[in-house]
């Protein structure tokens, strides 16, 4: 949890830094009066690294993935609930009572 959060924070910082560098680069281009064709290579690399860190953090931080396959162990229904609303009491337990001496003590 802590690691994911820190790396996510770091990723966002890296992205901000890349944005800041691009703005600075454009300001520099304005002074030298050149056309802006694209950010420099080191900014692109920084952007990519930030993106990867952010994606990793976004995938790990919120928790585990749940299976959507109907036949996975989490989703595969192996038995239905006993219909307790329709439970009836005259069954063999009447003839074979539980061999337990139990009392509710108040």
């Amino acid at each position: 949890m802590g690691l994911g959060f820190i790396s996510g924070f770091l990723g966002v910082l890296v992205l901000f830094h890349a944005a800041y560098s691009t703005i600075q680069y454009r300001a520099l281009l304005k002074i030298t009066e050149e056309e802006f064709s694209g950010p420099p290579l080191n900014v692109v690399v920084e952007l990519f690294i930030g993106l990867v860190i952010c994606i990793w953090a976004a995938l790990t931080l919120p928790g585990k993935f749940l299976s959507i396959h109907p036949d996975s162990d989490e989703n595969r229904i192996v038995s239905l609930p006993d219909n307790l609303d329709f439970m009836i009491f005259n069954h063999r337990r009447k003839v074979f009572p539980l061999e337990m001496d139990m009392k509710l003590r108040q």
């Binding site: 162990d73 989490e74 989703n75 595969r76 229904i77 192996v78 038995s79 239905l80 609930p81």
Partner: peptide
């Protein structure tokens, strides 16, 4: 509904 995981648990 009882799933496989819940049954094991």
């Amino acid at each position: 509904m009882v799933t496989k995981t819940e049954e094991t648990q």
